[in-house]
Computed example of a mutant assay.
Amino acid sequence: MRQSVAANRASHGASLNSQANIAAAAAKLLEKKKEFDAVSALERTSALFLERIEGLGEDCDIMADAGQAHGQVLEQWPKMFQILSLFLASREPSQEDTITGESPAILDGQRLVRIPIDELQPPSETT
């Protein structure tokens, strides 16, 4: 008796089925790769966003400290004017004051001061 040739022959339907499985697996792999790339891009973007937000937080802390220091300086101005007023009230009018004719208002701490801003500004070049 002769053996059957059908046992040695590869089934045509089985090869089609395995090729379909390979194609489906490749499509699924491609889809997962795209998903992984999107998640990686989101992670990088989130890290950059976190860096920027932390930088803004540090800037806000610096501005808060500067505002506090500014407030402390402003708090001292009335005390300084009070001290100046006490000094001017305690001082006797000198000969120089009487010669220049300064008014009693100067003794109260009210004095105009001229600041030469033209000399403080850098010269501008005109073309």
Rank of each mutant, 00 (worst) to 15 (best):
M1N: 08
R2L: 10
R2N: 11
S4Q: 12
A6W: 07
N8A: 07
R9F: 10
S11I: 04
S11E: 09
S11F: 01
H12P: 02
L16C: 04
N17K: 11
N17E: 14
N17G: 14
S18D: 10
S18M: 11
S18N: 11
Q19H: 04
Q19S: 07
N21V: 04
I22G: 05
A23R: 12
A24Y: 04
A27E: 04
A27K: 03
K28F: 03
L30K: 01
E31G: 08
K32L: 14
K33A: 13
K33M: 09
K34P: 00
A38Q: 03
A38K: 07
S40I: 06
S40Q: 13
A41Y: 08
A41H: 09
E43P: 05
R44Y: 08
S46Y: 12
A47I: 08
A47L: 07
L48D: 15
F49M: 06
L50D: 10
E51N: 10
E51D: 14
E51T: 11
R52A: 12
R52K: 15
I53Y: 07
G57E: 05
E58P: 00
D59Q: 07
D59E: 04
D59Y: 11
D61L: 04
D61F: 02
D61T: 06
I62M: 01
I62T: 10
I62E: 01
I62D: 00
M63H: 10
M63A: 15
M63C: 12
M63G: 06
M63W: 05
A64R: 07
A64Q: 12
A64W: 00
D65Q: 15
D65N: 15
A66Q: 14
A66F: 15
G67W: 07
G67H: 05
G67A: 07
Q68H: 02
G71Y: 09
G71K: 02
W77C: 01
W77A: 06
M80A: 03
M80P: 02
L84N: 12
S85R: 14
L86V: 02
L88M: 12
S90I: 11
S90D: 15
S90V: 12
S90R: 11
R91E: 12
E92M: 09
E92P: 14
E92Q: 08
E92W: 11
P93K: 09
S94M: 06
Q95P: 01
Q95E: 11
Q95S: 13
E96Y: 14
E96F: 15
E96S: 10
D97C: 10
T98G: 01
G101V: 00
G101K: 02
E102G: 03
S103C: 12
A105W: 08
I106R: 13
I106P: 00
L107H: 06
D108P: 00
G109K: 00
G109R: 00
Q110N: 04
Q110C: 04
R111C: 13
L112P: 02
I115Y: 06
E119C: 08
Q121W: 06
Q121Y: 04
S124M: 03
E125T: 12
T126V: 13
T127C: 07
T127A: 14
